[in-house]
Design a protein around this nucleic acid. Sequence first.
DNA 1: GTCCGTGCAAAGGATTTGCATAATC
DNA 2: GATTATGCAAATCCTTTGCACGGAC
Lengths: 140, 140
Amino acid sequence: MLEEKLENKDLKKAGLKVTVPRLKILNILENTAARHISAEEVYKKLLESGDDVGLATVYRVLTQFEAAGLVIRHRFDSGHAVFELDEGDHHDHMVCVKCERVEEFVDKIIEERQLAIAQSYGFKITDHCLYLYGICQGCQ
Amino acid sequence: MLEEKLENKDLKKAGLKVTVPRLKILNILENTAARHISAEEVYKKLLESGDDVGLATVYRVLTQFEAAGLVIRHRFDSGHAVFELDEGDHHDHMVCVKCERVEEFVDKIIEERQLAIAQSYGFKITDHCLYLYGICQGCQ
DNA sequence: GTCCGTGCAAAGGATTTGCATAATC
DNA sequence: GATTATGCAAATCCTTTGCACGGAC
């Protein structure tokens, strides 16, 4: 089906051989309600679908995807890393400390200030992250 | 000496019994050139000074200090947590990915924007962190 | 057929915990 | 003296690695 073909292209573009585990994991990342998902959760979803993929492979594939620029790895305060598809649009994150829901946002002004500050320190930014922790509307 | 007395007060204020390991660790946090230091580094410094404190105790004490609001725990991308004394003045961090040096900064505009954004999502901020990763002037 | 990817189990690093001893108040 | 803290070793959590086998190109 069309969807699979698109994913094939994604993998090939990234220089990765097209294999069943990689396709399945990419599919989960693309079709999961929560855009931000841990390796363990990916693994559980695979098991639920009856797919026989090892947790080690999940980590390996996610790490390769990260290196290939397909996904972004976040280390929120929760202890485990969470992964999200990198769709090219940078954004920051608001994390609910109760339900672990993640909200994304962008703010031009903040982005500009960050650059200006780094520049004033002679610092070359390679990456940055802004995490707001708190309680989301639903959990209050 | 005066210094020890002050630390005694800090600990008592925090509701913590005054013990040798706690005093020593507090002292290291106060007198270390790098304000941001890992549990392992605290432990090494204790060993160097000939103090017989276990690594488990270092972790326990740092965690208690965190709970008491005496220190802040950061989870930079480096894999291990780093701790810094909480002197009450909030600031953000710029971390050099080469030498792991940490620079602190504050920006009123960014702080304001964060509040405004959270508010617009009905989100109650409990904490937030902004990490700029990059290469510091010295490492370029 | 060659090479890369995978599953499994075992290793790894950072941090936490159980328990008997030792210190504080 | 009662209670809390410590040291040590073992346990735990998340993640990575070694190795023999299976699948992609």
